[in-house]
Computed example of a mutant assay.
Amino acid sequence: MNRRTYYAPHGGHPPQTQLLSDRAVFTEAYAVIPKGVFGDIVTSNLPFWEGTRLWVLARPLSGFAETFSQYIMEVAPGGGSERPELDPEAEGVLFVVEGEMTLTLAGERHHMAAGGYAFIPPGSDWQVRNEADSPVRFHWVRKAYERVEGLAVPEAFVVNENDIAPNEMPDTEGRWATTRFVDPADVRHDMHVNIVTFQPGAVIPFDETHVMEHGLYVLEGKAVYHLNQDWVEVEAGDFMWLRAFCPQACYAGGPGPFRYLLYKDVNRHPKLRLGGR
């Protein structure tokens, strides 16, 4: 299987001669955060992380993401954290897009390079350290795990995308495929973080309108997305947030594949009281 490449931001600032306007869009139904906004001025820091900065792509917020947060982490050589997650009820997914790092999970060390994926259950004992000579950049998706009486919490695992065969969508001749890291029928999981791949010219041939909230980070390629009756162009490095029930479809523009990292909440009853359980 071909090794993949992934877009990762490097920060910096555009020159003073650059036009101000860009493709950024923020609406009640969706948002597009283009790669051009990931400059130094919009980075954040976290407690107990050394040699680290991050771009916050999504956070729970009225009128924005409701079920998850997502960061792009940038950890310098020697940097990392012995206390990365301070919320004992938070589960997480790490996905490496550039560089390499060591994830220590329940005392076991895992080397993670580009394409590396880790699922971390709530309450886990884990640490991250960049032991290489160049920065590592990775996505960190966090969600408050929704426990269900009678269901065990899913176990941790570490894999690499390059070792998993994508699942072709029916009736698409392989033009649309999803790399799934957990079994969709495993209802212990209340979120999926997958990779979706469209070959040049492939489409989502109808406006999907469903209960799942989405976060999409474009790893490779470009496309035109149909969001709530608006057409928007997206490319590698862009992030999209889609509210539950936001109509969505896309057309992959080529010349290469269009691929994105996709978050969605799954396998739980919708809450019947706003702000409650």
Rank of each mutant, 00 (worst) to 15 (best):
L274P: 01
Q16T: 13
L57V: 04
L216W: 04
D133P: 05
G99W: 01
V224W: 06
E100F: 02
V128S: 09
D186R: 07
S81F: 10
L46G: 09
N160Y: 00
P270S: 06
F48K: 13
R137I: 13
Q229D: 15
T179M: 03
A165K: 10
E173C: 06
V37P: 00
A106D: 11
R273E: 09
D87M: 06
P47G: 01
P154T: 08
R243F: 00
V232P: 05
D183I: 13
A29G: 03
Y251V: 12
A76Q: 15
V203K: 13
R4L: 13
A244G: 14
R59D: 07
T172K: 04
V158W: 05
E74Y: 09
Q70G: 05
P135D: 06
M169W: 14
A65Y: 07
N160K: 03
N160D: 05
N228Y: 12
A24K: 12
V218M: 10
E173V: 07
F181H: 13
I204M: 13
Y263R: 10
K35S: 15
T179A: 05
P257D: 15
T197K: 08
F206N: 09
I204Y: 12
V141G: 04
A31Y: 01
R23C: 08
Y263Q: 08
M112R: 10
H13R: 14
L262D: 08
M112V: 10
E98L: 06
D125K: 12
G253S: 12
A185C: 02
L86M: 14
T197F: 00
L20G: 15
W241T: 05
D238T: 04
L54T: 08
F138N: 05
Q248W: 09
H192L: 13
L54Q: 13
E161G: 08
F206H: 14
L103W: 11
V75Q: 09
G36I: 11
C246G: 02
D207V: 01
A249C: 03
A236L: 11
G254I: 07
E100C: 09
T43Q: 15
G39W: 00
H226G: 04
F38Y: 15
A185F: 08
S62A: 09
N130C: 03
V224D: 13
L61S: 05
E82S: 13
S44R: 15
A31V: 00
L46W: 12
N160C: 05
Q70D: 00
E74S: 14
D40S: 15
T17C: 11
S124Y: 01
R59M: 14
H111P: 01
G276H: 07
V148K: 05
W49D: 03
A152N: 07
F181N: 05
E89P: 00
P47V: 02
G80N: 07
S62Y: 10
